[in-house]
Design a protein around this nucleic acid. Sequence first.
RNA 1: GCGGUAUUGGUGAAGUUUGGUUAACACACCGGAUUGUGGUUCCGGCACGCGUGGGUUCGAGUCCCACAUACCGCCCCA
Length: 428
Amino acid sequence: MRYQRPKGTADILPGESQHWQYVEAVARQVFKKYRFEEIRTPLFENFEVFSRTSGDTSDIVTKEMYDFKDKGDRHISLRPEGTAGVVRAFVENKLYGPEVQKPFKTYYMGQMYRYERPQSGRQREFHQIGVEAFGSDEPALDVEVIAMGRDLFKHFGIDNLRLAINTLGDKESRDSYRQALIDYLEPHYDELSEDSQVRLHKNPLRVLDSKDEKDKKFVADAPSILDYLTPAAQAHFDQVKSLLTALGIDYVVDSTMVRGLDYYNHTIFEFMVDSKALGHGYTTVCAGGRYNGLVEELGGPEVSGVGFGLGMERLILLMEAEGVQFPEEHHLDAYVVGIGDEANATTLQVVQALRSQDYSADRDYLARKPKAQFKTADRLSAAYTLTVGEAELAAKTIHVKNMASGNEVTAPLADVMTHFAEVISNID
RNA sequence: GCGGUAUUGGUGAAGUUUGGUUAACACACCGGAUUGUGGUUCCGGCACGCGUGGGUUCGAGUCCCACAUACCGCCCCA
């Protein structure tokens, strides 16, 4: 084995690729109903696009980014997530302009890159589907995005979802909560896990997310962000909750839920699922939230945004584990058996003629014996098997067999070449 | 970046404990069973090599080292 694919990458082979196409098709169809349209942005951006938006201290920027200097000495990074690039494009193309209807609703799907240790469903090159909606502060938009996410999973055949929501409030709420959290945790500094001791001053909210048992007992009694919301932030969150209820969407409020990226504020949410395929207990399959201020961060006007992203590898793993039926698409209408070298040209002509009549058709290219060709026709589940041999060539006919019924007929070659539908209507 | 487990053909794999002639078995695939008809049956074929590179040994798939990759856990997260 001379060459292997780079660590953390995967070949998506025929068979598997059908699952991907199905997922993408379903997503496009759902997004269309909500009037989200596709955007395609570069797989790489200037490093600063991600370092500015994700936060300089975030793990993504400090250790997971695939960045390099190109031949023009530009500091480039492969995109580790989708939002920053979309926001950059939003600003650069002035999609905040008056001629663009607000909210501007868009989606993307494609490769993302993170330099990290691969595990099942977690690769260095992976794929995300994400949506973003810009230009409205209304809680109704948060709820539309959440509702669309739920709708999406329903169409994927996943409906045993748990929706967890929380709010990070506005900047004022967040600052006062951050201080309160530090004040609470500081006296217990020596009792915290090593990781959390580092987190305490860098990003105290992350302590809430710790899986370390030592930390969990402090987290249980830690102050809640919900007690530090400004009236405006509180009102926003209340509206989100009541609109979710109005739509009959169940949710749980998890006040310890946080985000790895710095740009989120107000509503954040996660769709979680309890499936062995993704590990023990509830794991997140889709995460999103509001990011007011991000557009400004990248040089645009004061335009708010809300969106979500989901990992396609994990989604497909989940769908396969949950027994979702993917449509099978390798239907073969006709297999053409050619007997003898003299039949070669005619066989090729018939196959092409059937294809031009919009039938899927194939033939043997290994010069195999008739018996082997018939076996292949069967294995490929061909609906019809056509046979051309010495006798047919002489008589300008072709033998057509319905593989399901076993009925067969000898038809004029010219009919099959131009009116295959009529020919088979006589033998079904 | 740290720790653990694993790596045998197209596939699933036995064999590694106690290093010793021909790498089991099965599936898939290919060919054949009197000349041009398919899911069954029967027969036959199918690893000069055991992730890669070194080392120990009279001898290594089996022991040692390094590297690569996969999986699990940590970190983080989709």
